[in-house]
């Protein structure tokens, strides 16, 4: 897929929480390129003297009709905090779409059931993945985890796409515990599992899927500099050796990783 470096226009900045924004971007001059779920954007950060590199942010939602797309940004450091100060009408230098993306099987291979498991800002690519799976005729089910109710973001948008289940560690919403404790693992079977979030969560989901002999794909978010496979900083150990998360990932079949 061709990559672009473009100045995109900020259409809207919505605070979902004091440290989470939903950033809506548009290309004022061209039709947006095709973007796959799991792919990401490298954003240039301005107004943060301590920030030198771009920030990789995964694509959360695409609205082709309006020629807009959303990024969910968690302000965790100087760079992402500076992004929360963006305002409607600002322009933003973006390199995109980057990475491989999740696979969407052709529907003529049969309608499939997908369990999409997200935690924290890792829920971002799950929304787009669900959106694309549903559009292709498949059945996505979401499982979102957080410490408490306030960690569960964009719930309505998930519910608009598919059945959505929640776990919270304090039992403030959905079932109590981690995503791997949810009863859906016992009551239903899925053809495919996908997950994005904190590494311990992804590893636990991977073990659950493996125990059920269900294929499992994870989206990694290793630290990276370039995003295009040049700097070799974002590598993950795989059965093929060290590979770049930015080009050979961020989506990996769990069987290709060397996780225990």
């Amino acid at each position: 897929m061709k990559k672009y470096v473009k100045k995109l226009c900020v259409k809207n900045v919505e605070f979902l929480r004091e440290d989470y924004i939903l950033l809506r971007l548009s290309d004022p001059h061209d039709t947006l390129p095709e973007m796959l779920p799991g792919q990401f954007v490298q954003i240039a950060v301005e107004g943060s003297p301590a920030t030198f590199l771009r920030r990789p942010i995964s694509i959360n939602f695409v609205d082709k009709e309006k020629n807009e797309f959303d990024l969910l940004i968690h302000a965790v450091g100087d760079g992402t905090r500076a992004l929360t100060r963006l305002q409607e009408g600002n322009t933003l230098s973006c390199i995109y779409p980057l990475g491989n993306g999740f696979r969407i099987p052709p529907i003529d291979e049969g309608k499939k059931k997908f369990l999409l498991v997200g935690g924290g800002v890792g829920t971002a690519p799950m929304l787009l993945y669900g959106q694309c799976l549903k559009a292709a005729g498949h059945e996505p089910t979401f499982l979102l985890g957080g410490r408490s109710r306030r960690d569960i973001l964009e719930l309505e948008r998930f519910e608009n796409i598919g059945r959505t289940f929640v776990t919270t560690e304090d039992a403030g919403m959905g079932e109590k515990g981690f995503v791997t404790h949810h009863s859906i693992w016992q009551t239903e079977t899925f053809d495919s599992v996908a997950t994005c979030g904190p590494k311990p969560m992804m590893m636990a989901v991977g073990r659950m899927a493996r125990a059920r002999q269900t294929e499992c794909f994870v989206s990694l978010e290793n630290l990276m500099a370039c995003g295009v496979g040049a700097c070799l900083c974002c590598v993950e150990k795989t059965v093929k050796g060290n590979v770049c998360v930015c080009t050979e990932g961020p989506v990996f079949n769990i069987n290709d990783l060397t996780w225990e």
Binding site: N222, L223, C233, C234
Partner: peptide, 10 residues
């Protein structure tokens, strides 16, 4: 194979 991750600090 190069060195282990992490390989970069801003």
């Amino acid at each position: 194979q190069g060195n282990d991750y992490p390989r970069m600090a801003e």
